[in-house]
Write a protein that binds this DNA or RNA. Structure first.
Length: 431
DNA sequence: TCTGGGGTCCTAGGACCC
DNA sequence: TCTGGGGTCCTAGGACCC
């Protein structure tokens, strides 16, 4: 059915005959699983329900089942290393322990919290289950990672039907149906925001967490969105928020009231204009149901910082293994790539990247290793290394037109950037 | 107690081509 | 010999997200 114009003069007159005139053209949902990794673990270990549980760590923190059937769990205080928390239960959050926090720091705040290793295999399984359950009710889904999706509900049957005097009754009914379906498929709860666009829905799904439903229309923006801190807007990160604060802007309302010219002057034409639009809740982005990867990568942070000379053998071994894992990822997923990238993070967290575009795409571990090795020669290696990563971009599928060899550019490889003097001979001997 | 691993997108300068 | 503009590719870094 065609969307009717939202003409206020005719809205009330047609309300009885055509129930949907009060609703916007688009109804977009954002569905966010509640404390996803932790909740999946609670399905396995139900006796932990209500406790402070943190997901991080490695295999070694796997619970041990004793002969009498009871389980012994690792505690946060047992952890040593450089890992961060990926998820924590709401009880753990009450103790001040959040995702992204270093586990050693978290252990100071909540030493008795239970520590479980991450099990991506299991999370991917439940991810597929909940997405499939939603797809049966509403097939227009955009994947936003393992635990969240956008859903275009605009054409879902019944969504525009009022219930009693509630014009949003149909919207809420569909939201409840989706939540029930996810629950039946997984035993897990989620939170849903439904609004006219992705930007607002992302904010809305967070307003009543966990296990909530939040429906917002344009008229609700001043009362529900404007009081929030600018960090609640997806796309405003720590840097932008800090800069906004220096301008006296902390809430979305203050951002909405700011002169667009000021924002453009401070943040550039594109981002400045976007900030203004976002603060007014405007977002035309469609729900994208299919996308191709741009790059595939593997990286690892060492347990201790490694030195290019002293730890050469170990670095070389890790480097090769990363390339092999990456090649295997590419093969399994059916991609090859022309641009090979190297990433190094040094002690002090300074990060450097180098890349090299080949004449033809590859998915071969040795070719990747060679190209990444050439990149390595362009980096000064005086400081100890914390992280090593390898990336393949410029992806294509073997046999496709974009996969044709290109010989357009002279290979400027090593001459592109002269390396700091004194490091070159050293690098040649390394890795 | 320093900050994982997997990504995307944007900016900006220089090369290169027309 | 000097000037110049547009378009695309390559590279490096950074912000941001899950």
């Amino acid at each position: 059915m065609a969307a009717l114009p939202s003409d206020p003069l005719h809205a009330s007159a047609s309300a009885c005959a055509v129930p949907n005139t009060a609703l916007p053209e688009r109804l977009i949902a954002h569905l966010d699983m509640d404390a996803f990794y932790a909740s999946v673990e609670l399905l396995r270990y139900p006796e932990l329900k209500g406790q402070a549980v943190v997901i991080g760590g490695r295999r070694m923190h796997e619970p041990v089942t004793l002969p009498d059937g009871t389980r012994r769990y690792a505690r946060l205080r047992d952890y040593t290393g450089r890992g961060v928390i990926t998820t924590s239960t709401y009880a753990a959050r009450d103790l001040g322990v959040f995702s992204g926090m270093g586990m050693m720091k978290a252990a100071l705040r909540a030493p008795d919290a239970i520590l479980l290793p991450t099990d991506f295999e299991a999370y991917r399984h439940y991810s597929r289950l909940f997405k499939a359950a939603v797809a049966e009710l509403a097939p227009v889904i955009e994947d936003r990672g393992i635990d969240e999706i956008y859903i275009d509900l605009s054409e879902v049957p019944g969504i525009r039907e009022p219930v009693g005097h509630d014009p949003l009754g149909g919207v809420r009914a569909v939201a409840r149906e989706i939540k029930n379906s996810v629950w039946r498929a997984t035993g897990l709860s989620c939170s849903i925001g439904i609004t006219p666009n992705k930007l607002l829905s992302k904010i809305a799904s967070d307003l009543d967490k966990p296990d909530g439903i939040t429906v917002l229309l344009e008229a609700d923006i001043p009362s529900r969105i404007w009081p929030l801190h600018v960090r609640k807007v997806n796309g405003i990160g720590p840097k932008a928020a800090a800069k906004l604060q220096t301008l006296g802007i902390e809430t979305v309302a203050q951002l909405a009231a700011a002169e667009p010219a000021l924002l453009v002057a401070q943040f550039g034409k594109s981002f400045g204009a976007w900030l203004h639009e976002a603060a007014h809740g405007r977002d035309k982005r469609p729900v994208v149901t299919h996308s191709e990867p741009v790059s595939i990568s593997r990286e690892t942070t060492f347990e201790r910082d490694l030195h290019a000379v002293h730890d050469r053998a170990e670095l070389s071994h890790i480097f090769t293994r990363l390339c092999e894992q990456l090649a295997s990822d590419l093969t399994r997923k059916g991609y090859q790539g022309r641009t090979i990238g190297l990433k190094l993070r040094f002690e002090g967290f300074h990060t450097v990247t180098r890349d090299l575009t080949l004449d033809q795409p590859t998915q071969d571990a040795q070719a990747i290793r060679r190209a990444a090795g050439a990149c390595l020669k362009r980096v000064s290696l005086e400081k100890r290394i914390r992280l090593l990563g390898v990336r393949v971009g410029g992806l294509s599928r073997p046999g496709s037109p974009e996969a044709e060899p290109k010989r357009r550019r002279a290979n400027r490889g090593d001459s592109a950037k002269p390396q700091p003097s004194g490091t070159s001979p050293q690098n040649l001997a390394l890795f």
